[in-house]
Simulated scan of single mutants.
Amino acid sequence: MGRTRCFEIVVFVVLGFLGSALGDLQLGFYAQSCPKAEQIVLDYVTKHVPNAPNLAAAFLRMHFHDCFVRGCDGSVLLNDTTSTSAEKSAPPNLSLRGFDFIDRVKSLIEAECPGVVSCADILSLVARDAVVNRGGPFWQVPTGRRDGTISKASEALRNIPSPASNFTTLQARFASKGLKVKDLVLLSGGHTIGVAICSSFTNRLYNFTGKGDQDPSLDSDYAANLKANKCKTIRDNTTVVEMDPGSFKTFDLSYYTLLVKRRGLFSSDAALITDSTSRSFINQLLQDKLSNFFADFATSMEKMGNVGVKTRTRGEIRKQCAFVNS
């Protein structure tokens, strides 16, 4: 057999293996084993999210935090054990909410198809359906994820980007998950429907370098407004601020408009305009139609939803999302 022919066979085998591995997630994975699963999720979201619209941003954030630690395996849903502090207990996750919502959806699906649908898939579907319910973009959610059995607060702290992250850190954290600068810019766009507690960014207003100063990269008029009307002390742990003031209920491009005006709330938001590549993506988004942003955001969400997934015999299908199976 010639060398060229051998090479072609090797390439074919490798590509076939990769295709099989990537194909473990598939649209309609539960079509036979639990055909009503995705409709149950959609119906529950449609019924309850309109009564608590901020949950859309909460589930988007929860999904993001889950995927950045051990992959999209539902490990963020696990409770602490007697021996281990779970991801929920890590500082980046203390403000996550909506766990009871996920638990209720899981109970409904367990009643329909016991032991079939993973919590990781439920979280992925809820995040998508909640965003769409609030007028945001639709993205495909292939299913077949299995649930992880390990959840450590220390890993969440190491992997989830901080609101204080600079661009270098952001790029490195995203690259470690196979996500590019364009994905960083697009996924940050989820902040268009987000809110933040004052204490997560008040160092920029009152003590940026430890000398009682203000972050010079933050628009001074915006900073003055926040000090006067929202975050009146550096230790305000209760007041909530819209990430996209005036448009936080609408999934649109105004978050990026604020960034170029130096009105991004977090240092990690402001960091996006400090890099030429990142800024060029932002400028292009602002020149494009909203439909382009929706399509690109969907593509990045699909990529993120595939990060580190567990399939086949890896992991388990949890009976309850907060606990591993006994």
Rank of each mutant, 00 (worst) to 15 (best):
R5Q: 06
C6F: 13
F7K: 15
L15H: 02
G16E: 01
L18A: 13
G19I: 12
S20A: 04
A21D: 01
D24T: 12
Q32V: 10
V45P: 08
N51D: 14
L55Q: 13
L55N: 14
A56I: 08
R61F: 01
G71A: 06
C72N: 10
G74N: 05
L78R: 14
N79R: 11
D80S: 14
T81K: 07
E87K: 14
E87V: 15
P91I: 10
P92D: 12
L96R: 12
L96F: 04
L96W: 04
D100P: 01
D100Q: 10
I102L: 15
D103L: 05
C113T: 08
P114G: 07
V117K: 07
S118M: 07
D121C: 15
S124P: 00
A130V: 05
W139Q: 08
V141I: 07
G144Y: 09
T149M: 13
R158D: 14
P163Q: 12
F167P: 02
T169F: 02
R173A: 10
L179Y: 03
L179C: 07
L186K: 11
I193P: 00
F201D: 01
T202E: 03
N203A: 06
R204F: 01
T209W: 02
K211I: 07
G212Q: 05
G212N: 06
Q214R: 15
Q214V: 14
S217L: 10
D219K: 12
Y222P: 00
A223M: 03
T233W: 06
D236R: 13
D236S: 08
T239C: 01
P245C: 08
F251C: 05
D252F: 12
L253A: 07
L258H: 15
L265F: 02
L265K: 04
S267D: 13
A270E: 10
I273S: 08
R279M: 14
S280G: 04
L286D: 06
L286F: 05
S291C: 05
F293Y: 15
A295C: 02
F297P: 01
S300K: 03
M301K: 12
G305L: 05
N306L: 08
R312Y: 09
I317H: 02
K319Q: 13
